[in-house]
């Protein structure tokens, strides 16, 4: 398990590099590695930009037949008022294309988001090999 603090912009790069190398060590294909790194980049930026910083927990996950990459992003920011809206492709309140959340959901196999206004956001994602 690895904890990566996300407080400055270059932490986004650190987060996606860490996720990529974990995926690589688990033998992910080039395409799946790229998916993981891209989704982590989006989510880390979300934590940094909208959550005012936070952290990413990165670890290997496995069940009987497969292994995967498991990431949990946590911030103590303002939270997301309307999750359904935030998940809509193209919707953005900041500087982005508005594909961060919806895009990373499409790239990962499991995507769980919990948010409470005033109490921050927690996003959990899994990509199986």
């Amino acid at each position: 398990m690895e904890m990566i603090e996300i407080h400055i912009e270059s932490d986004i790069v650190r987060a996606r590099q860490a996720a990529r190398s974990l995926a690589e060590s688990l033998g992910f294909s080039i395409l799946s590695k790229t998916r993981v790194a891209t989704a982590v980049s989006e989510l880390a930026r979300n934590t940094f930009t909208y959550g005012g910083g936070g952290s990413m927990k990165l670890e290997k996950i496995s069940d009987r037949t497969r292994v995967g990459v498991h990431c949990i992003f946590v911030d103590k920011g303002p939270g997301i008022e309307d999750i359904v809206k935030a998940m809509t492709p193209g919707y953005t309140t900041g500087k982005g294309l508005g594909f961060g959340l919806s895009g990373s959901k499409r790239l990962m196999d499991d995507f769980k988001i919990e948010s409470e206004v005033g109490n921050g956001t927690r996003i959990e994602v899994i990509k199986w090999k």
Binding site: T34, T38, S41, L97
Partner: peptide, 10 residues
């Protein structure tokens, strides 16, 4: 570039 995310894409 090993990844292009929505920000770099934009």
């Amino acid at each position: 570039l090993e990844i292009v995310d929505s920000f770099i894409g934009r």
